[in-house]
């Protein structure tokens, strides 16, 4: 089963995204901050990573850089979850190696569709 890692510090959004993706048939692993995201990425070897940009302990941007530096994770697509109005952060994320970003607020069906499309694009 395709495994997706979600790192998001807002519990309601984390649960929303997890529920939506499980409902769509994916296996989901969740983290609450950037440090956990890096640790879980190394332990779980997901097929796709969704990272919030603003998180405590370590930002999504930093987490992305660290994940991409791991040899067995560098090809895992990373998608940022961000609010419009944070273009500089989004650009920083792209520069750090993220493949896509998804703007909040997003509808669950939008999220599922984007995830499906990205996984397909990366042959997963």
């Amino acid at each position: 089963m395709t495994k997706i890692l979600i790192a998001e510090d807002e519990p309601d959004i984390r649960d929303l995204v997890a529920f939506t993706l499980r409902f769509a048939g994916y296996e989901v692993v969740t983290g609450t901050n950037g440090e956990e995201a890096v640790r879980l990425a190394k332990d779980e070897l997901p097929d796709l990573i969704l990272l919030d940009v603003r998180m405590p302990r370590m930002t999504g941007y930093e987490a992305c850089k660290q994940i991409k530096a791991e040899p067995n994770l560098k090809d895992v697509p990373i998608v940022f979850l961000s609010a419009k109005g944070q273009e500089t952060e989004i650009q920083d994320g792209m520069d750090a190696g993220a493949e896509e970003y998804l703007l909040k607020p997003f509808a669950p069906d939008q999220l599922t569709e984007r995830v499906r499309s990205i996984l397909s694009k990366f042959g997963k």
Partner: peptide, 25 residues
């Protein structure tokens, strides 16, 4: 940037959960 993030965070939850309910999930 902060206002954008703070306003959009609860809106994401409201919109998302309402959509899930409407989906019948």
């Amino acid at each position: 940037a902060t206002v954008s993030h703070e306003l959009r965070t609860p809106m994401t939850s409201i919109r998302g959960y309402v959509d899930i309910l409407l989906m019948g999930a």
